[in-house]
Design a protein around this nucleic acid. Structure first.
Lengths: 225, 225
DNA sequence: CGTTTTAAATTGATATATCAAATTTCAGAT
DNA sequence: ATCTGAAATTTGATATATCAATTTAAAACG
């Protein structure tokens, strides 16, 4: 049985469905470490604690199981499965998928996408001096989104979203470091050039290295906290 | 009491729940095309048709949604989402993940794993003449499993399992072609050598190309049927 | 007729009840 | 004390009931 205060009841007013809301709550609790690896999740207890029935909770737990954050032993129970090693593997999964997306983007990119990427790079470089971290994060996401759109790979994109261990706080932490901001822009520009040159192999490699390098940086940070 | 390691617990995977069974049924129905893309899945009808209640079905559908085979519109319904383009993307996802696993394997592989791979290659080459396709498939899976084990990447491995669009019938179809069997062994040997040489970049590239090439072959076959 | 309004039916979302496997408890035997 | 095993308890798995949003049908109105 888990620590009693790891999760608070859901607010009486909820926007999305209960199961989606609960999914987010439990997911964040696991990724932030409030629910620790190995901990057993009691369905009734957890549902009661959240003030809901077991039905939407069970569905949320299935999704978390499919994403690999919990492990279900039939007729026995559900256990949290998340540690430093898995966090690194999730980062590697993101690198693998994101680099495959970049590869496809380099094959199918249109001139207008290239123009959009270049605009974003210019904005990023300018943003280096404004020091507005939130805006830099937004630019970051828009840049990756342009590549996703250009790739035309909706499935890969959706799959990649599931592997994101980044919370807003985490992104903020990484990009608040000056050296990191500089490196990110340099790497983004190199990736943009590779895609613009329709060089799938290079785009793939640069994207993989970019995700792994910045990912390792993030992992080191959270392990120190 | 005797030695503690005399007997290991029965793996829980042997006990199959209704939800897992139903998941497999619906999944196969989608991948085989018996449930067509865009088709709406009525929970009550489907549950009644399967002779079960909606509870395990809903859980199965959540997993399928997490895997991207169905799309859920809140309070409206669940629709099958699978077409040729997505099948190709699933293959690309497998290529991305499998090649990342191969990369990690090349970094961490032990000599005993290398020996095991080489044994399997020899068996495969011999199997080319016995023409026992089923045994060749088994060897195929064992070879990939050795790499998975050597990589130590349990999460990536599990994630990759979800992207498998291969049914037993599909593998059988592809490997029943003589030229394909020959190519597969050649590629496997090259991959094994790259891993044995502790060459992550090469192992990654060879694995990616292998999965994509044989995957495309498979996709062409099913599109012709 | 065609359009709008409203009532009925459908159905996904959620809650509750039941079942059965797994765990725990504890009396009785050695 | 320690082991055994049956009974009680817990709990995941499944079934059924209820709720509410959506769709469909029908009625009302122009």
């Amino acid at each position: 049985m888990g620590s009693d205060n790891a999760l608070l009841p859901v607010a009486p007013v909820f926007l999305k469905s209960l199961r989606d809301h609960v999914y987010g709550l439990v997911r964040d609790a696991i990724l932030s470490g409030r629910l620790k690896s190995g901990e057993k999740l009691n369905e009734r207890h957890l549902a009661g604690q959240l003030g809901i029935s077991t039905t939407p909770l069970k569905e949320a737990l299935r999704v978390l199981e499919a994403e690999g954050l919990v492990r279900s032993e039939p007729r026995r129970g559900i256990y949290v499965t998340f540690n430093a090693g898995q966090a690194e593997e999730m980062m590697l999964a993101r690198a693998a998928l994101e680099s495959m997306i970049a590869r496809q983007a380099a094959k199918r990119v249109k001139d207008e996408d290239v123009a959009l990427m270049r605009e974003l790079i210019v904005e990023m470089r300018a943003g280096l001096k404004t020091v507005d971290v939130l805006q830099l994060i937004a630019l970051n996401e828009r840049f990756h989104n342009v590549i996703h759109e250009a790739s035309g790979c909706g499935y890969l994109r959706r799959l990649q979203g599931g592997q994101s261990i980044y919370t807003h706080a985490a992104r903020l932490s990484v990009l608040s470091e000056e050296r990191e901001r500089f490196l990110a822009v340099e790497e983004h520009e190199a990736i943009a050039n590779a895609i613009a040159d329709r060089d799938p192999d290079l785009a793939e490699r640069l994207m993989r290295d970019h995700v792994i390098r910045s990912g390792e940086k993030h992992l080191i940070r959270v392990s120190q906290a």
